[in-house]
């Protein structure tokens, strides 16, 4: 029954601003996080100095660690737009690396 002052966030929890804030972060933390993980796996696959199939397995394993990291970051970022921008930037960077590296030859 003890309600510490920090827990009572009723005021900050209603209204469209709060909802939009959460919605944007959810967007960044779900589709955004998955996208960044997917692009990380693609970029890694193409730059890791392994055989094609070993690059695939290694990159996939690493990418799973990226996903929760991005999700958590999306909710810790200073503002919702910052969260979205950060995710977009990471995606752009990783996508760029993957694109520049190109599909490896057989």
């Amino acid at each position: 029954m003890t309600a510490t002052p920090g827990l009572d966030r009723r005021k900050g929890r209603s209204g469209w601003a709060y909802r939009a804030n959460v919605a944007l972060r959810v967007l960044a933390g779900t589709i955004g996080a998955y996208g960044v993980a997917a692009l990380a796996s693609m970029a890694l696959t193409r730059i890791l100095p392994f055989s094609r199939v070993e690059a695939v397995t290694t990159a996939t394993m690493i990418a799973y660690l990226v996903m929760p990291g991005v999700t958590i970051w999306a909710f810790l970022a200073r503002g919702p737009w910052r969260a979205l921008a950060g995710v977009a930037l990471a995606a752009l960077l990783l996508g760029g690396i993957a694109w520049l590296a190109g599909q490896p030859a057989a």
Binding site: A38, S41, T45, R52, Q103
Partner: peptide
């Protein structure tokens, strides 16, 4: 998370 397969093999999943 099949995207690393796409990155390395494109559509050629059989080769993978």
């Amino acid at each position: 998370l099949p995207w690393s397969i796409t990155a390395a093999y494109g559509d050629d999943v059989m080769t993978m």
